[in-house]
Every structure is written in structure tokens, then in C-alpha cells.
Design a protein around this nucleic acid. Structure first.
Length: 886
RNA sequence: GGGCGCUUAGUUCAGUUGGUUUAGAACACCUGCCUUACAAGCAGGGGGUCGGGGGUUCGAAUCCCUCAGCGCCCA
């Protein structure tokens, strides 16, 4: 079974092989199993036409880690994948595609357009799904859903009908965020505010029956054509006599009232505000309060309509601005123009400034829906990680407005509202009616709009099953356990899923929500296509391997902070993968037996040495730590814990420590060392598997027993009381310190590695002597010494460098090689460090308050330190004296 | 304007409820090594007083106040 491994880890040779094998074995598929506890995650469905980004890598790796880990723990793990139809984003792409072919969507009509859109989706959709497979995602692909596939479609319409019947959904004329480019309403969350350098225009409005005028300041002069009032603050002394008067709107000639309203900020501009109820949300409110005229001056594309004076009709809004300014200048009605910086709302998709615009839309009243959803998070039924997101959530939920759910688009779920053309009866139902329920007419017309994308994806955690049908899968897998997603969609999606969960299932949709960080480039800029700073994950997989990409991204993903990504970070983790590979290679090269259950049965191990007990103790600690960290969603710390154990403990120390036994020991010694090494390596592979599924499977195949399963479904390691050995761990630490101290001297004295040394040690206790005597041959090998003498009363050789480790003195006689000056320098440095430590402890103990008030244990510890440092210092000074006399 | 968060070696970050260490790691840097797992490696080393100021405490990177800078979200 054992085969030769290459010197360098080559990911390209194994990734596709194992992924196919896992699919063939159907490991990712889950069925309800009453014997097992389910563990469920639903994927945040990526846009169907999207391609994999580093953001996807980040959050899908986390989900895969959770799923693979829980699967190994014996849970019935089910990760449900799928894609989102992404109404506005996809429609925009299809429209662009048609434009290139020379059509507009209106030219070909709705049905034809939808055909094109579906073709486009079939052709370009789902690329991202294939890319997720390259990443190693262990989704249950048999359960893949699309938010517009057949059953899902029904679920969305069903939810609409239910909410309509409950009285939550209504149609109304409101001011909405209007995107003139796509000619559709968009939600508040789709508006992106950007800072712009602009102007504040101060315009004069003549007062009726007077030669006087007042001055209003505005950032949007063109909207003056729709003004129907002037507002001032009720307490503003400057304008008291104006309240109740009329002014004559320039260019239009309309007489409009001056009134007082609290909303006005006296400090801004002149304190007089022009009020355009149809084109500003605040003015809309004031218009309602003061019964003003609502004058809509825009067409759907934001050009001026016939409600403005003739010369302006048909102008685009930006042209209109210039025209208004010019006319006012000519009439000497422009008082002044100031520089002004303000934020302009842009349509996320259309990428043009949005226009507050009055239109008929469908709305969802959120008042009742919010209540249980808010309580669930407050009462910790749903936990956010990091927890501070609960504040953001509560703040938004507490100030929620009605949700505009209709979009003037074609790609999506068409609103299931039918109006009889004869008697105006309205029918709201899932199945399209064939005749009017009131008059029997067959002349029915369906509402033209489609639903906001989020009004379908908010059902995701249960609509991926057969909901609203009775469904045993739904019963088994709902509520799901964990959700991993970006904080940018906490309102769009997370909050709404919680509301939908309660409304339609009467239960939470998930227990935990882990919010990932935002990935930025090395300079902290957002990843974007235009900056070209957004690497293609597929290229990275080719270059570094999927495992290294996964591990690397986890390593740099701190909880709750932005991630600064750069390729160097991946080199680091590729190096780590190579390290793990080579450590495995070492073990396999030295394993000269076929693995049996006895080899990995700790009860059968004979004559364990200190190094063995130490590494097993460390293994225990690592299993405990890694499991605990995963439970707390600490993906980065888990990666670091694995790194530390594998590289520092296992590779740098344990493997080096057993080489002597392997190369020079007896058969029995060799077998013990190898058994322990194999045992540890097996657990390392299991713990690495969620992070590095491909490599861990490849290695696992070499160290598993014949009747054991593939690593995907192998058992997650658990802590063994057997291996608990804190005393031995301390002893091993002492041993390591001794070895390091000797190496330091060699290095600082410039003793070449080829030069063997003599070593004399004067120990401080029998215990120390014991440890060192037993490890003598090992110490010799690891420090390249050929003559070692340890004892309580060993004599210090005259020409020697020295060091102290836990009150033990080490001497390296290097007659002829030792550089006296260097050694004096070294000792002086050491002395000064020790003096510093001593001083600090003395200072503490000299403080009466400290001795009196600090806990006894803390004081005792300090006294111990004092004693230790004082002794060390004395010996170091002694050594220095002798050196100087030579 | 409101809310949330951040500020620790050249860089990116750890540092759990204040006390096992005059602050740890990785990368970068310096020195020496191709030592039969790994040069994508091994051994060793230098480097920060924890954004500024104030306070609580026997003791603060860690808690409180304040100032400054940066970032995000919402209006």
C-alpha cells in the first residue's frame, strides 16, 4: 500500500482524483437519519451568473470546514447548495447582451426576453457551482436549488399570497428610490451614497405684492420647477413676518405659500427651504403635513414632463439644471453659488444618481414581522458572531420601514395579482385564474412587476425543501444550525430570513450566524474589477493548490476585522502544506511495517520515552484546543493552533528527537517511536482535513488501517486521558531549553556545524540529572556533541563558554576555538538582562503595598523569581570573572 | 449628525476574566548551514514599552475618561 511520495507537494496530482472519489462514494449526500443528530447549513446562494471571488472562497471554506468537521463528529451533515436568480443583476446583464446584438428588451417583448434570459442563465449560470467544487466544497449536490426553479417558484408565490391575505402586503403610491437607468424602483439598501463635490445655489424667490424677495439655498436647482411651498423654522426670528405670505415661483409663475415647520435647520443655507413634495422624501412629509400640491415633474427616465413650462419639457434632469441656472442668472435671481460637498445616492445596479420618485408600488408592512425576529436575537435564540453585529441588527430592526417589494423588471417572480378587466375584481393566488371569481370574465390581467430578489431568497432555509408541502426533509433539517455570510447583507437577507422563519415556520431559521470579514487588497482597498486587484481564485488554486488557498485564507481571517489579502500570504501556507507533506513523507519512509491495529493501540506500546509522552500530551492539548476553537467559530486561531503543533512540536522537535532511535536504536525502540509517530500523524491528518481536505485524504490513505473508511467520514479525534502528562511535558521543556542553549552558544561562537563539541553540565538537582542522562544520546545528536558529562559536581573546564538553564550550568570547553572577547561580550549581555529582571522583581517586592495586598501566590512567585535571578546572576558574574583572568 | 469598530515590532496580526514573559507569532531582515522528510528547508540572532494624555489599582497592552487618526454602516 505504501508508495513513494514526491519531495514536493504537488496539489494538481491529487485534487481532482479525490473530489471525484468522494462524489462516487456519495459522501456529501445526506438523508434524514433518526439515529443521528442533523447538522445543516444552507449556502448563501451566489448569483447564478456570478463567478467565484475571494469573498466566496472565504465564506465557503468556512462552511466546508464546519460541515466536514461535524460530519467527522458523526453528525448527519447536510450542506445545501444553490444559486439565486438575482433579478436586477441578471436582467442588467441580459439587457446588455441584447444591446450588443442590437435589440432592446421592449422591442422583443416580455416572453421573448425571458426566453433569452433563461438561455443566458443555462449558458453562463452555474459556473460558480463548478468552481466551488474545485475549492473542495462538500455540498450535497443532489439537493442543489435555484430560486426560480419549479418548486421554489411556487413557494415564493405562496408566501406572497399568505402575507397578502394576512394584510401585510398592500399597494400604494409612495416616494421610492427610482433608478432612471433601469426604470425601476429599488430598495433603500440598493442605494449607495457617494460623496460629490457640488454647489449650493442661492436663489431669489420674489415675494408677492412686494418688491422684496427671499433666498433659498439648494443642491438641486432643477427641482424648483416642482416647488409648491417654502418652509422656515417656526422659531427663526428672521422670517417671522414671512410666514403665511405667498411667493411667486420664478420661471413658473406659480404662487406658493411660506409656512413654518420644525424640520427646517436654521443653520443650513439661508434658513429658507424650497419644498418639492414629489421629489424629496422630507419634502414629501412636509407636503403631507401642510397640504401642499404634489407636482411630479419627471418622466420615468428622469427627463422633464409636461408639468413644467414649455421650454423645459423633454430636457434631461442634468440639462434642466443648466437651463434653470442660466435662466435665473438672466433674470438676476441667482444670489450666489457656493462650493458644497454632499452625498448623492447612486443606484447600485444602474450606477446613476437615484431619483426620489412617486410611483405605484407593492409594499410589505414589517411591523408585526419584526417583533419575533428582534426578540430572537435579543434573547440569544439566534447568536451572532462576532456578537457586536446584534447592535447593528437591533438598530435597523427598531427603525424598519415598509419594504418596497415590487420591481419594474421582467426577470423574477411575477407578482401573482390578477385584475379583472371587466369588473376590476382583484384576485391574489398562486395558480393563475382562468376566469374572474366575481363576474366570470376571462379578461384578466396580471400585475406587470416582479418581486424584489430578496423576497424570494428570504425563504431559502426552508424553501430549499418542499415547503409549503409537508416534507420529512424539512422536518429533519429545519431549523438549520449555522449560517456563514457577509455583514453587508445583514439587512437584505439575514434579518429577513429570521422574519420569514418565524412567519412561515414559526421557528428560527438558524442558531448561529457567523459574519465573515470583508476581503481587501494588500493596501486595504476594496477588491474591484476596475482596480484589477481582485485575483481569480481558480488561478490561485492552480498556483498554490486548493488546500493552501483554503488554509491561507483562514489564517488571515480574523474575527470581525477586514482582511488584507496578498499572494505572499498564500506562499506561507503553501510552504506549510509542503511541510506537512514532507513530515508525512518522513514517517512513511521510516515505517518498515504494515500498519495493524496493534501499532496504534496505546496499550501495546512498550518503553515510551520522554519525547513520546511529551508529544502525546501536546497532541491531547491540540485536540482539545482545536475542537474548542471550532466550536467558537475561530477559524484563524484553529489554523494557527494546527500550525504550531505540526511545525513547532511535531516537526521541529519530535521528529528530530526520534531520529536517533530510528537510525541507531533497537528494533523495539524503533517500532515504538514509529508507532507513536504514526499515531500522531493520523490525528494530525484528521484535524487538518476540514482545512486541507485533499492532502489529508492522500496521506490518510497511507496511514489508515485497511478496514477504516476514507478520511471524509473518519472519526474526529478525541482527548485521551492516557496521554495526560503535564510533568513529563515540563521535563521535555527543560530538555528543549538545554538543547537550545547549547545551539545558541555554538551559533554565537561561530562553531561550524561540522565541528563536534564537548559538553559539561553541572545540574541543580537529581531530577535534572535524570532527565539529561536518559536523553544523553539524543542531546549529543541534536547539538553535535561527541563527549558529554553531566553531574552534580562536575568541574568547570577552564576554557569554556557557559550558559544557565533553570539553575543548571552548562559549559562548552572549546580550547583553541573559543573567542574570549566574544564570550565576555555574551556574558555581559546575559548579566545585564538578568540584572534587569532582578531589578524589576526587587522593585515589586520592595513595594510594601504589593507585598501586603497582592494575593499570596503572586507574592510567592515573585520571591521565587528573585531567588532564581539572584543565583543566576551570581554564577554568571563568577564566569565572567574567570574569563577575564584568562 | 447618529451608530459600530480599529490604533501593539519594517509589515500583517495574537495577547481569553488586569498578575506564570522588562509583550508573542508569521513574513521581512541579519549570521551560519544543501545535517540521508522538507532550501517552499534547518539552526541561531537583532527589532516594539503596546496612538497621545489623564485616571482606577499593590499591579494595566488589558478596565474607565479624554484627545487624535483611520475604517465601516445608517441618516
Amino acid at each position: 500500500m505504501t508508495q513513494e511520495l514526491s519531495k514536493r507537494y504537488d496539489s494538481s496530482l491529487i485534487e481532482d482524483k479525490w473530489y471525484q472519489h468522494w462524489l462516487d462514494q456519495n459522501y456529501f449526500h445526506s438523508e434524514p437519519n433518526p439515529e443521528k443528530e442533523p447538522y445543516t447549513i444552507v449556502i448563501p446562494p451566489p448569483n447564478v451568473t456570478g463567478i467565484l471571488t475571494l469573498g466566496h472562497v472565504l465564506n465557503n471554506t468556512m462552511q466546508d470546514i464546519l460541515i466536514r468537521w461535524r460530519r467527522m463528529q458523526g453528525r448527519e451533515a447536510c450542506w445545501i447548495p444553490g444559486t439565486d436568480h438575482a433579478s436586477i443583476a441578471t436582467e442588467t446583464k441580459v439587457v446588455n447582451m441584447l444591446r450588443e446584438k442590437g435589440f432592446t428588451k421592449h422591442e422583443i417583448g416580455r416572453d421573448e426576453f425571458l426566453k433569452h434570459a433563461m438561455e443566458w442563465k443555462d449558458k453562463y449560470g452555474g459556473i460558480i457551482i463548478e468552481q466551488l467544487k474545485k475549492l473542495g466544497a462538500s455540498c450535497d449536490w443532489e439537493r442543489e436549488r435555484f430560486t426560480m426553479d419549479e418548486g421554489y417558484d411556487t413557494a415564493v408565490l405562496h408566501s406572497f399570497v399568505e402575507l397578502y391575505n394576512a394584510g401585510y402586503i398592500y399597494r400604494g403610491k409612495r416616494l421610492v428610490n427610482w433608478c432612471p437607468a433601469t426604470k425601476s424602483a429599488i430598495s433603500d439598501e440598493e442605494v449607495i451614497y457617494q460623496e460629490r463635490n457640488s454647489h449650493l445655489w442661492h436663489m431669489r424667490y420674489p415675494i408677492k405684492d412686494s418688491t422684496d424677495y427671499l433666498v433659498v439655498a439648494t443642491t438641486r436647482p432643477e427641482t424648483m420647477l416642482g416647488d409648491s411651498g417654502i418652509a422656515v423654522h417656526p422659531d427663526d426670528e428672521r422670517y417671522q413676518d414671512l410666514i403665511g405670505k405667498q411667493v411667486v415661483l420664478p420661471l413658473v409663475g406659480r404662487e406658493i405659500p411660506v409656512f413654518a415647520d420644525d424640520y427646517v435647520d436654521k443653520e443650513f443655507g439661508t434658513g429658507c427651504v424650497k419644498v418639492t413634495p414629489s421629489h424629496d422624501p422630507n419634502d414629501w412629509e412636509m407636503g403631507k403635513r401642510h397640504n401642499l400640491e404634489f407636482i411630479n415633474i419627471f418622466n420615468e427616465d428622469a427627463s422633464l414632463n409636461e408639468n413644467v413650462p414649455g421650454p423645459f419639457i423633454g430636457l434631461d434632469r442634468f440639462e434642466a439644471r443648466e437651463a434653470v441656472i442660466e435662466q435665473l442668472n438672466e433674470l438676476d435671481l441667482m444670489e450666489k453659488i457656493e462650493e458644497h460637498v454632499h452625498k448623492v445616492g447612486y443606484s447600485e445596479r444602474g450606477n446613476v444618481p437615484i431619483e426620489p420618485y412617486e410611483s405605484e408600488q407593492w409594499f410589505m408592512n414589517m411591523t408585526e414581522l419584526v417583533k419575533p425576529a428582534l426578540a430572537a436575537v435579543r434573547e440569544d435564540k439566534i447568536k451572532f458572531h462576532p456578537a457586536h453585529w446584534t447592535k447593528t441588527y437591533e438598530h435597523w430592526m427598531g427603525n424598519i420601514k415598509d419594504w418596497c417589494i415590487s420591481r419594474q423588471l421582467w426577470w423574477g417572480h411575477r407578482i401573482p395579482v390578477y385584475t379583472c378587466q371587466d369588473c376590476a375584481e382583484i384576485m391574489v393566488q398562486v395558480e393563475a385564474p382562468t376566469a374572474c371569481s366575481k363576474c366570470g370574465s376571462s379578461s384578466l390581467k396580471q400585475d406587470a412587476d416582479v418581486l424584489d430578489t430578496w423576497a424570494s431568497s428570504w425563504l431559502w432555509p426552508f424553501a430549499v425543501h418542499q415547503w409549503p408541502e409537508e416534507d420529512k426533509d424539512l422536518d429533519y433539517y429545519y431549523p438549520t444550525n449555522d449560517l456563514v455570510t457577509g455583514p453587508d447583507i445583514i439587512f437584505f437577507w439575514v434579518a429577513r430570513m429570521i422574519m420569514a422563519g418565524y412567519e412561515f415556520k414559526g421557528d428560527i431559521p438558524f442558531e448561529n450566524v457567523y459574519f465573515t470579514s470583508i476581503i481587501r487588497d494588500g493596501q486595504g482597498r476594496k477588491m474591484s474589477k476596475s482596480l484589477g486587484n481582485s485575483p481569480d481564485p481558480l488561478d490561485l488554486i492552480k498556483k498554490y493548490g486548493a488546500d493552501a488557498l483554503r488554509f491561507g485564507v483562514m489564517l488571515i481571517a480574523p474575527k470581525g476585522q477586514d482582511i488584507l489579502f496578498s499572494e505572499e500570504r498564500l506562499e506561507v501556507s503553501r510552504n506549510f502544506m509542503n511541510k506537512v507533506w514532507n513530515a508525512s513523507r518522513f514517517v512513511l519512509m521510516n515505517k518498515d511495517f504494515d500498519l495493524t491495529a496493534d501499532h496504534i493501540n496505546p496499550d501495546k506500546w512498550q518503553n515510551l520515552e520522554l519525547a513520546d509522552r511529551w508529544i502525546l500530551h501536546r497532541l491531547n492539548k491540540t485536540i482539545e484546543r482545536v475542537t474548542g476553537l471550532l466550536e467558537g467559530f475561530s477559524f484563524d486561531e484553529t489554523a494557527r493552533a494546527l500550525w504550531d503543533f505540526i511545525w513547532n512540536d511535531f516537526c521541529d522537535w519530535y521528529i528530530e528527537m526520534i531520529k536517533q532511535r530510528l537510525y541507531e536504536g533497537t528494533e523495539a525502540q524503533k517500532q515504538t517511536a514509529m508507532s507513536v509517530a504514526v499515531y500522531v500523524l493520523r490525528d494530525i491528518m484528521k484535524m487538518m482535513h476540514p482545512y486541507a481536505p485533499f492532502m489529508s485524504e492522500e496521506i490518510w490513505q497511507q496511514v489508515k488501517l485497511e478496514n477504516e473508511p476514507d478520511i471524509v467520514v473518519a472519526e474526529w479525534p478525541s482527548v485521551s486521558e492516557h496521554f495526560h502528562a503535564p510533568e513529563e511535558a515540563k521535563q521535555a521543556d527543560f530538555l528543549k531549553k538545554v538543547i537550545t542553549a547549547i545551539r545558541t552558544i555554538r551559533s554565537e561562537m561561530n562553531v561550524p556545524p561540522s565541528q563536534k563539541i564537548k559538553l559539561v553540565g553541572r545540574v541543580h538537582s537529581e531530577a535534572q540529572l535524570n532527565i539529561l542522562s536518559q536523553a544523553k544520546t539524543n542531546i549529543a545528536k541534536l547539538t553535535r556533541a561527541d563527549d558529554i558529562e553531566f553531574g552534580m559536581d562536575t568541574v568547570k573546564p577552564e576554557f569554556s563558554a557557559s550558559a544557565m538553564v533553570e539553575k543548571m550550568e552548562l559549559f562548552i570547553p572549546l580550547e583553541g576555538l573559543i573567542d574570549l572577547e566574544k564570550e565576555v561580550e555574551r556574558l555581559e549581555k546575559e548579566i545585564s538582562t538578568t540584572e534587569g529582571l532582578l531589578k524589576s522583581v526587587e522593585g515589586k517586592l520592595a513595594n510594601k503595598n504589593f507585598v501586603d495586598r497582592a494575593p499570596e501566590a503572586v507574592v510567592a512567585k515573585e520571591k521565587d523569581k528573585l531567588d532564581h535571578y539572584a543565583q543566576s546572576l551570581k554564577k554568571l558574574v563568577d564566569h565572567l570573572e574567570t574569563m577575564k583572568t584568562l
